[in-house]
Every structure is written in structure tokens, then in C-alpha cells.
Design a protein around this nucleic acid. Sequence first.
DNA 1: GTTCCGCATGAATCGATAG
DNA 2: ACTATCGATTCATGCGGAA
Lengths: 292, 292
Amino acid sequence: MEYINKILLGDCGDVLKNLPENSVDLIFTSPPYADQRKNTYGGIHPDDYVEWFLPKSLEFKRVLKPTGSFVLNIKERVVAGERHTYVLDLILALRSQGWLWTEEYIWHKKNSFPGKWPNRFRDSWERLLHFTKDKKFKIYQENVMIPIGDWAKDRLSNLSDTDQIRDESKVNSGFGKNISNWVGRKKVYPTNVLYLATECSNKNHSAVFPVELPEWFIKLFTEPGDLVLDPFVGSGTTCFAAMELGRNYLGIDIVEEYIDLSHERLSGVQIRIPSVAEKKGDYSNERVEKNG
Amino acid sequence: MEYINKILLGDCGDVLKNLPENSVDLIFTSPPYADQRKNTYGGIHPDDYVEWFLPKSLEFKRVLKPTGSFVLNIKERVVAGERHTYVLDLILALRSQGWLWTEEYIWHKKNSFPGKWPNRFRDSWERLLHFTKDKKFKIYQENVMIPIGDWAKDRLSNLSDTDQIRDESKVNSGFGKNISNWVGRKKVYPTNVLYLATECSNKNHSAVFPVELPEWFIKLFTEPGDLVLDPFVGSGTTCFAAMELGRNYLGIDIVEEYIDLSHERLSGVQIRIPSVAEKKGDYSNERVEKNG
DNA sequence: GTTCCGCATGAATCGATAG
DNA sequence: ACTATCGATTCATGCGGAA
């Protein structure tokens, strides 16, 4: 496989044409935001953003397995005092292209960019749009479970007999069944809000999102050995996370400088044995502890 | 003024026709979500939601002052495994109606509805769409400043789990002392994410959002004596917050039961002197401390 | 007066079953 | 086939009574 664990130079819409269809398990990417990175990407005008994106997402859809997921990290910028609608337009356009808009996760940033504006506050969240090709897709919810809240310690430490028998009485009350299910339970499922810090000053590369972000979705939507694609790979954070978790990766970028940066960053990565990598779930969950 | 501090029965699109134009300073409302409250409201089909909403928002626009704000609390539901697009469509339609989509705030819910599904996690956030008629509008950012600085945040987040669990009281008490020192010293502006709990067990009235939510926007966008409108007033939380903060209110609902409920709830409210109400900022900010 | 503990209550969603 | 109803699942919070 010549496309496994590589960082390739070029427009992802072109490069991906050489990739066989249904070969990717997860696409996680943060495309250049409209007009945001003018220097490096040439700057796509907000009004042209959807038109620019659609040919690429068509290739994404071709190479993604039917059971795969496409996670898009994006946020609309302010234009003339208003939030521009290109992200909304993009969601609608992607649905017209055949994608299912399965969910919208939120990245709640712990430390957002500083600043003050007269008509708004600091922007402290970004969208993580989850698209799929099919209503059925691979998902491993147990991989991202988080420690149970403090309430459990007090409530479940000593259960009375009635608690364990309570089975028939209430129909509508939340815990109507039996609380004994909760005894010894240490972990619960997270929600669709991720509370993570931004990566501030990682000396060499300036990633736009913390490594925990792709980590979370890679663990949620793939197994070890699966292929993760980032078509706008930038400084390589997604590929770094994939490698670290024992997944294969493919990164693409049109800026040569980023290719070198990614290579450099990935060269030092120690690939963990899958079983060990999975255990790492604990660490990641600490970071997402506010997620609930 | 016969529309000041009243709760009126009827369809807001009709009732508002009798209100003079440019008379409202803030509209804060949480309309019935599509199909969600079928038993109390009629239950609007997602596909018909925009069509149902637009005539009403046209009246909102007429009665709102040019300097006013319209804050819409809404969240799309899942239909056939997908997020439905009626909220996106509504945003676009409101812009066509002449509204400016100035900002999208996020309500990050502390306690979201429980449940487990095979393809998604619990939904823990809702949208707070901020529309205005003009690029220039009234905003009082100082009213919602947060007293906690970065020093405190780091201090808190650096506490180990065992510290927080075992010595919770110690930590809290010691911390409390310090807090008193910070009050009035260092304040920072919040972000566009509000981290609040839902009010679930308020036995008499089941509000769909906590009172802190309208409070925050009322303080941000109005002065004492201004008029706050909630055209889907429900259990009256918005009017309660307005009254409490020394603002005038107008509530409208099509369900008679809610009118009575609001009246009952508002009858016992003690109106605070504006200056005192503003001091209350500290208390409210505590609730929003995660907002940063 | 505190603290502790039981308990009901959520703008939910999916899959299966019934009409 | 297509819609309507129902059971199962899940977690944080505030209230009120008890210790």
C-alpha cells in the first residue's frame, strides 16, 4: 500500500483521485477557514467557500468506507459584523451531495484567543460536524468513557435493600428500574461537548487544535490498524494522533512547508502497541472530564 | 402603557400586531422545538417549522427597537438518525427577512438528558442565536464580567482529583476566603459559551432553561427600565428574570395554563433596586464561572 | 443549624411492535 | 410501506425529610 502512513503534497481533490474507493475509515480534518490563513493558503473568499469545498468532499465520499465517518472541524468567521453563513451553506450542500449530517459536536475551548470587541465576546467554541455515508457506521463508544461524577460516590456507596428491589413501582422515574446497576460503575459515557484546551505554544508547529481532539474521534470511530485521512494535514496533528494510537494515517497538504513539518514531527513518534494505546484512554478522559 | 409588565394570552404573531413598532429592547425566547412539546403546544413538524416561524419573527422585527437584540434559544432534534436542518434553514430565512445573524452563543448544559444510543452521545448543548436589526446595537459588556482571573482558573484546574474529593471542604473554604479578596479587583470578560445547569426539579414549574440564561442576556443587552419581550413565555422564566433585574417585561403564550403559571410565579417577585440588581452580577457570574 | 440521604425529574433517542 | 406508540437506556441536580 503506497498510501499508508504517508504525507503527500498536493491538492487533496487531485491526490485522492489515485486512492481506491472505500479505503478510508475516518476522515478528520480542519480545513483552512475562509480568508483566515491568507498567507499560506491563498485565502478562500467566504462567498466562494462552498464551491471550493464540494469537489474535494466528493472525493472524500468516494474514498471513505460506507461504515466510516467524516469529522469536520470548522467555525464561521465574522464578516461585516455578522457571522457568515458559509458553514451553514456547506452543511446543506454536503447533504445534497449525499452525506448524512449525523451529529454536531462542540469543542468548548478552555483557553480561547484573547481580545475584546465592542459587539461580541471571545469566541470560545468550534463546530465538529460529523458526517457519515450511511445510517449504520462504526462507533466504539466504550473507548471514550469518562470517570463517573462525584454524585455517585455519595449516592451509591451504600444502597438500601429497597433500592435493589425497586423494580415494579415507578414507570416514569429515571432510576425506576434498579439502582444496583450502578454499583461499582466507575465510568460513564461522555456527551457531545468536548471541553479541551487549545494548544498554545508548541515551540515549532502551531496546530490549530489540540492532539486530544483527533485522538478522541479516532478512538471513537476506528480500531487499531484502520486508516485515518487528513486531507488538510497542516502541522500533522491528526496523523500524529493516529500513529500514536496504532492506526494508519494518510496526510495531504498543498503547502510544501507543512509536509516537511509533518514528516519531522512524525519521525520521532513511538508507535504504541494497540493494547497499550487503548489503555491510554484513561489519560485522555481526564482531559475531557468537564465533558458532562 | 397597557403592555408593560403583562402576560398575555394568544398567538404572539397576532398579539404583537397591537404593539407599537420600535418599542422593545430585547426579545429573549425559547420557542417550542419542532414536535417536541406535542402535548402542550400543537407540535410543529420539522419540515414546516420555518414556515410556522417566519410570520411571527416579522412581528418581532417590527416591535424591536433598531438598537435592540433578539436572542433565540433553540436546538434541532434528530430525525431518522440525522440532525434535522430546520434550525439552519431558519437562520438563513431570518437573514432573508432582514435580520443580521450577529453571533451564536452556546449553552453548555451541565446536566443533560440521560440516555444511551448506538450512534450518538447525550446532547449537552443548545444554540443561543443572537440577531439584530442593525450593526449598531446596545450592549453592556461590563454587566456580565467574571471576577475570576486566570490565576484562579489555573489554580483550580491544577488541583488533583484526590484534593478535590477528599478535602473538598477545606479547599472550598480556603478558596472562598481568597475569592472575597478578588471581588472588585480583577474582572474579565466572559466568552460566548455559557456553562449552566438545567432546572429539572422545580416542582411547580418546569422551566426549560435556568433563570441565569435570560438574566445573562438581559444584563448584557438592556438597562434597568428597558422592555423585555418573551413571545413564547412558557413558565415565565424570562419575565421573572426581567422583573428581578428591574426591567419591564411582556410575556405572551398561546397556552392558557402557562399564563396562570407565569402570573403566579411573578406575583411573589421582589423587584430589586437597579443598583442592587447590578451588584448581583457577582452572584450570576459565579454560576457562569466555567464560562472561560 | 448542618450534613446526609432518598428520590423525582428532565426540549432525548432508538428499535421494536402495533395499527 | 408508513406512521404511532411504547419500553429501555442514562446521569446530574435540587428538594425535602432524617440523622
